[in-house]
Design a protein around this nucleic acid. Structure first.
Lengths: 127, 127
DNA sequence: TGAACATATGAGCAGATGTTCAGATATCAA
DNA sequence: TTGATATCTGAACATCTGCTCATATGTTCA
């Protein structure tokens, strides 16, 4: 097998299989300016939060205005418990923010990026 | 329990639980201009393709230029088989395109939307 | 033709995910 | 306080996911 580029050896510690890159220049270029593992893992978790029709309905509903859990349950058409579970995850992944007002909890999108991801994705799908 | 809005009755067929919307106006507003179930399911599947660090590394690598499976395997650091499995899914969900050239298969991002989703997501995560 | 190579694919398994159910917490009103 | 309401949370379950292994397909070259 041919020698792997140094950056690859450093990257993965050792040859992980007998596959070797065919276009070493292209591989080197692709290795430049990579996001950190932590950022990439976080990004994957973020997209995971958008990878469910139920949660996308929640995002869609929150694009216009903030809503309470009960309203979201009605709009999305799943149980209040299920919505609450989803919202906690979405909160943790910074897809939504919330505020408590008495016994109600009002949710809204975390920032403009979330609405933008939803919009861009929908454009892509509708083509 | 209070009566549910007509649009909700139509939407879900019948009262699905004893939860009722607290803000009927807000619920009605949220129900306007919703994407179709088919589009939303497709959108969820699209985000699902971006919900894995391995596949995100593939997208990241393909932002600059097209690469063959072998190169991608090297850049991403997983087996050729795993990359190939991912690429088939990503092809089906229109995240990537491919072209065959001899025994090689070259992959690139399907369109600008994909790069945009990656970029926006990374911005969001890096804040 | 046969060997080497690049990629695709099916089966199978460990781990993650989405929902429901039951019950906890907290607030409001009488 | 008591009861009703709004939300949160843990456990449990069936389903889905991502990887590996083994193998198949198709191409190039000698």
């Amino acid at each position: 097998m041919s020698t792997l580029p140094d950056s690859l050896e450093k990257l993965h510690g050792e040859a992980w299989c007998d596959v070797h890159p065919v276009h070493e220049d292209a591989v080197h270029a692709a290795l430049m300016g990579r996001a950190s593992d932590a950022h990439l893992a976080h990004l994957a978790d973020t997209f995971q939060m958008l990878a469910s029709p139920t949660r996308l309905r929640i995002v869609e509903a929150l694009r216009r205005q903030e809503l309470c859990v009960c309203d979201l349950s009605a709009v999305v058409g799943v149980s209040q418990s299920a919505v609450s579970h989803h919202l906690r995850q979405m909160r943790q992944m910074r897809i939504v923010r919330w505020r408590k007002d008495g016994r109600m909890a009002y949710y809204r999108l975390d920032d403009e990026h979330v609405a933008q991801l939803f919009g861009t994705g929908l454009e892509h799908v509708r083509e």
